[in-house]
C-alpha cells in the first residue's frame, strides 16, 4: 500500500445490467493520496464504478485493481475500502453507538475519537437508530462512519443528500481537516460541483458509462476561459478553439472555451477590449456533459483517459 492510500486502476471495465450498459470499456487511473471528484449526470455510471471498487459486484468484463489487486473477496483490500452511500450499508436497526462499535471492530484504521467529534458536529444522538433518522441525519451519520473509518480508499457517493447547507460545509471542513492530517485516497461523488470544487485535486467525469475526462482539477480549471465582449470580436477570438458554451445578450456574447491561452492571446484580448474570466468546475462540467458537446468531445476521449 502507498503511504497515502490506495490507488485505483480500471482496465477495459464494462458493467452491464441486462440490456443496460452502466460502464462501457472504461480505462481509468485514480492516483493514491488524492481527493478525486467523480462527476457525472444521473445514470452516468458513478455508483456502478463505486460498487465495483468496494467489491459489491464483479464487472461483466475488464479488470478492477485497488492497490494493485483485485478487490473481489480480497481479505487484505476490502477492509480498507469504505463505500458510503447515504447512511452507508450499516445495521439500520441498532443504536448509532452500537453501529460505531460494529464498524470499529471491522475497520482497521477506525478512529472512535473522530467519530465522537463528528457525532457532536452533526448533533447526532448516539442512542438513536439510523432507521429512525431524517434523510439529512442519515447522510450525516454516513459521513461520520466514512471519515472515522479512515479507509485508505474512501468512496463517498452522494453523501450530501438531504444535508442542509451548514452541515454540508461542516462536512467539507471535516473532510479536508482529516484528509490533511491523515492523507488517503478519497473518491467524492456529488452533483454539487461548485461546493466540492475547492476540495478536489483530480476530476473524473463520466458520461453515459464512459470516461469523458480524467485529469487534475487545477489544469482543468486553467483550461476553462470565459470570453466576453462584442459578438463578432468574441467569435473571431475563439475561432479554432473548442467552444463549450455560448450565451448572447444583444450584441454582447460570452463564450466558454476549453483552451490554455498564451500570453499573446491574453494581450490580444486586452487590445480588443475582450474580458477573460475563469470558469468554475461546475460550468465546465455542465458544458462538457451537454449532449450537444458529446459528439465533438467523444473524438478526444482516448486522450483524456
Amino acid at each position: 500500500m502507498s503511504d497515502t492510500g490506495y490507488g485505483v486502476t480500471l482496465r477495459g471495465v464494462t458493467q452491464r445490467f441486462g440490456s443496460v450498459v452502466a460502464l462501457d470499456d472504461v480505462d481509468l487511473q485514480i492516483r493514491a493520496g488524492t481527493i478525486t471528484g467523480l462527476l457525472g449526470r444521473n445514470g452516468s455510471g458513478k455508483t456502478t464504478l463505486s460498487v465495483l471498487l468496494a467489491a459489491f459486484r464483479r464487472p461483466t468484463a475488464g479488470q478492477v485493481l485497488v492497490d494493485g489487486q483485485d478487490p473481489w473477496e480480497n481479505e487484505r483490500v476490502v477492509p480498507n475500502v469504505c463505500l458510503i452511500r447515504e447512511a452507508g450499508d450499516l445495521p439500520a436497526d441498532e443504536r448509532m453507538s452500537a453501529v460505531l462499535r460494529y464498524v470499529a471492530d471491522r475497520r482497521p484504521f477506525f478512529d472512535p475519537d473522530l467519530a465522537g467529534r463528528l457525532m457532536d458536529t452533526f448533533a447526532l444522538d448516539p442512542r438513536r437508530r439510523p432507521a429512525r433518522l431524517s434523510r439529512g441525519q442519515r447522510s450525516a451519520f454516513g459521513i461520520v462512519v466514512g471519515l472515522a473509518s479512515r479507509a485508505p480508499l474512501t468512496v463517498l457517493d452522494e453523501v450530501h443528500l438531504g444535508l442542509d447547507a451548514p452541515s454540508r460545509y461542516a462536512f467539507y471542513d471535516a473532510l479536508l481537516d482529516d484528509y490533511l492530517a491523515h492523507p488517503r485516497t478519497i473518491l467524492l461523488s456529488s452533483h454539487l460541483v461548485d461546493e466540492i470544487d475547492r476540495l478536489v485535486e483530480d476530476v473524473v467525469v463520466l458520461d453515459r458509462g464512459r470516461v469523458l475526462l480524467a485529469q487534475d482539477a487545477e489544469s482543468l480549471r486553467a483550461q476553462g476561459v470565459a470570453v466576453t465582449g462584442p459578438s463578432d470580436l468574441v467569435e473571431a477570438f475563439v475561432a479554432g478553439r473548442e467552444v463549450l458554451g455560448r450565451q448572447r445578450l444583444g450584441r454582447t456574447a460570452q463564450l466558454t472555451v476549453r483552451a490554455e491561452l498564451s500570453a499573446d492571446d491574453v494581450e490580444r484580448a486586452r487590445r480588443e477590449g475582450l474580458e477573460l474570466g475563469p470558469v468554475g468546475l461546475q460550468d465546465l462540467f455542465v458544458h462538457l456533459t451537454d449532449p450537444q458537446n458529446r459528439l465533438r468531445l467523444s473524438g478526444e476521449r482516448g486522450g483524456d483517459r
Binding site: 468496494a54 467489491a55 473477496e73 476490502v78 475500502v81 463505500l83 452507508g88 450499508d89 464498524v103 479507509a151
Partner: peptide
C-alpha cells in the same frame, strides 16, 4: 449480506 460486505468483509467470512 449487504451490511457485511459494505463493512469491509468478504462473502467467505
Amino acid at each position: 449480506l449487504r451490511v457485511h460486505v459494505g463493512s469491509g468483509m468478504t462473502r467467505r467470512s
